[in-house]
């Protein structure tokens, strides 16, 4: 029983990360009609910049700030690249462009950071300091930060989308872009805003990953993007609630597999379960809002 509780705790922590990633990608899909295959890579490269800043300046605050800036700026810079193809409704080409950007970012991490080797952060950053232990169950400060920050950021995002004027314009664009244009909503500015919001979410994800994992490697980005996409499909394309639910489900599945199966089967089983679910219910668990 304790083992199961420990596994569930681990699943909730990783599920929080997956939910944040999926929510950021879903936001880009519903507002900007873009499936960002480079999202995970943007998160991880900002972790690498954080590591580099820490090594150069020894300042944790500055390194977190740099991670946040890099993440946000990357998303902001990608928007104009994608705009031409989006406006011409070239869906597959947009996908491929983001795949290419993701691969360039991965290659940059392999070539220019720590000779392509994985990076590690000091113990004081990874794990977040104190930990509560009860037999097999160990809850670190980082685990709490991850879960609390995820819940808080989702609450802030919900407030932004439902209670602020800018948020309502984003929702209007997600609902019907033609009518939004007719109503005078500045489409380009709002699309850029959605990329910036996604950038903030990816910055937060990067910081939480540093606390939770304390390490990163160039291939982690592909992994995260992939899981974000799979979670989007599991929850329902364009469905923000589905993204959150799907993230936690995937996190729990992977934790259970890691806990009870020998070998490195977590990723394969997680993906397999998602494939099984979308075969039975192609619209996802909560139904899709936007088709791919």
């Amino acid at each position: 029983m304790e083992a199961l509780l420990a596994i569930i705790e681990a699943g909730i922590v990783s599920g929080s990360i997956y939910s944040l990633i999926a929510v950021g990608m879903t936001l880009l899909l519903v507002v900007a009609d873009v499936i960002q295959f480079a999202y995970g890579q943007a998160v991880v490269i900002s972790i690498f910049f954080c590591w580099l800043t820490l090594h150069l300046t020894n300042s944790v605050v500055l390194s977190f700030f740099v991670a946040a800036v890099v993440s946000t700026v990357l998303q902001f810079v990608l928007e104009p690249l994608l705009r031409t193809l989006r406006e011409r409704k070239l869906v597959l080409e947009t996908l491929i462009l983001t795949i290419a950007v993701g691969m360039i970012l991965t290659e940059a991490m392999c070539q220019y950071f720590n000779a392509g080797m994985p990076i590690a952060f000091p113990d004081s950053m990874a794990g977040g300091g104190w930990a509560l232990s009860f037999r097999l169950i160990r809850i670190t400060a980082a685990d709490l930060y991850v879960v609390v920050a995820t819940v808080a950021s989702l609450a802030v995002l919900a407030f932004f989308l439902f209670k602020t004027r800018q948020g309502k314009t984003l929702r209007a664009m997600a609902y019907n872009i033609q009518v939004s244009r007719l109503l005078g909503i500045p489409i380009r500015k709002c699309t850029t805003l959605s990329f910036v919001v996604a950038g903030f979410l990816s910055a937060l994800t990067a910081i939480l990953l540093i606390l939770a994992l304390g390490a990163a490697s160039p291939v982690l980005g592909e992994n995260l993007t992939f899981k974000g996409l799979a979670v989007m499909m599991l929850g329902g394309m364009g469905n923000l609630k589905g993204a959150v639910l799907g993230g936690f489900i995937l996190g729990l599945i992977e934790a259970l597999v890691r806990g009870y199966l020998i070998g490195d089967w977590a990723d394969a089983v997680g993906m397999g379960v998602i494939m099984f679910v979308i075969t039975l219910k192609p619209a996802g668990l909560l139904g899709q809002v936007k088709q791919g």
Partner: peptide, 22 residues
């Protein structure tokens, strides 16, 4: 659909690579 196909087949690459590694 186009996107589902892309992600599903990428997931299969992932799954098959993991199976082969194990």
């Amino acid at each position: 659909t186009g996107f589902q196909m892309a992600v599903a087949t990428m997931a299969l690459i992932f799954i098959i690579q993991t199976v082969l590694k194990n």
